[in-house]
Write a protein that binds this DNA or RNA. Structure first.
Lengths: 209, 209
DNA sequence: TAGATTGTTAATCGATTAACAATC
DNA sequence: TAGATTGTTAATCGATTAACAATC
């Protein structure tokens, strides 16, 4: 057990695992072949097999993989088997969009509280989440032992929030701001760079035309 | 000119270009060295130099790059020199978050109209954008010659919308849904896979702990 | 059995990193 | 000039893809 927990998986494979999981959750067959998954998701069959191999689930030639087993294994691999509690900081448009997207619970994430520094927002309710003042962030992270912080504030406050959260015990940060966060090396930061994504789109379009 | 338009840039470099651009826009120096940029963004200096090389801007040893020239070149490279008009489909939480994020204009994107299939939303206003019924999508894309569609609907309607838009002349799709879009090969699709990003975070955290 | 599908081993490809000469 | 910084060429690394034997 310990051993597989420590294994480092290729990140591109990790990124594709939830695609497989989504697909597996939709179908009703008992077994599914990598070939079929590949076709549905527009991925090469060999890549599907390689990706699925990291879950340590083995398929049966001519039959494929057991769907139930595979779903469980992917969830385990991603750390989605028990819900990860998270705090969300920044109740702006973006934060609200995330709060409104209930599906995160299907993806291992459980947002348990929301923070904002805007006095007018504090105390109000968004989608059933009561909004706390950022001043309480440190204290509540410690008390609730929350390990994940989601930053949806403007970039200018991101570093400061990260510092606070890390000091209080947060181990992973999902950063939706354009800021580059400076953190100790044992802290995991995952950046959602919408602008990088947009760059790919527009630069490809430019080439295309 | 033609020649450089057709060149295919490494996608990882393209993803980093806007980070450089953001940084360059913040500073006030006339020249900047790759080394300094690298330090600020926590990237290796050699990678910064390699990335900047794709813009064809050359720096001066000991001096660095001309900031103004570099900004222009990056914008050109990304196709941000003239604003790309885009339609947004799906005025839900996520769509609204994008509409509220005015900064896209600094990143080459100009959302010109918003569509939704919800009759209650049609005709109303969000952040100054009037919402049109999806039925008008085809017609307006043709009339306004819009080339980019942003899909922020639920995944179930994404393919259908993509088909409609492509038929009407859209060339690039920014897909915020989990759906895998099936499109002709000359059409550019860029997927924003929040769940893939979350996967990276949670799986790394699992290893860390 | 025959053949679809898996899992493994090897080859290819592309990105990152290193080394270093050129140069302002 | 001396030395910081660039740009180029080569080495390394990791992911993707190909080939194929194993097997249900």
């Amino acid at each position: 057990m310990k051993k597989d927990e420590k294994k480092i998986y290729p990140l591109p494979s990790i990124r594709r695992l939830p695609l497989y999981l989504n697909y597996l959750r939709k179908i009703h067959e008992e077994n599914i072949s990598g070939t079929v998954i590949a076709e549905a998701l527009d991925i090469l069959p060999i890549q599907v097999r390689k990706d699925l191999a990291i879950t340590n689930v083995t398929g049966k030639p001519k039959v494929g993989f057991n769907v139930k087993e595979l779903k469980k294994a992917i969830e385990h691999c991603l750390g989605w088997n028990n819900l990860n509690d998270a705090f969300l900081i920044g109740a702006g448009h973006f934060g609200q969009a995330l709060l409104g997207y209930k599906k995160f619970r299907d993806h291992g994430l459980n947002i348990v509280a929301v923070f904002d520094k805007d006095e007018d927002k504090v105390g109000t309710d968004i989608f059933g989440y009561k909004i706390f003042p950022v001043e309480k962030l440190n204290n509540l992270i410690q008390r609730m032992k929350v390990k994940i912080g989601i930053i949806t504030t403007p970039g200018s406050t991101a570093q400061e929030l990260a510092d606070t959260m890390i000091e209080a015990g947060v181990l992973g940060i999902w950063n939706f701001t354009p800021a580059t966060l400076n953190v100790p090396e044992n802290i995991v930061v995952e950046n959602v760079r919408l602008v990088s994504s947009l760059s790919v789109l527009t630069s490809k379009l430019k080439q295309q035309i």
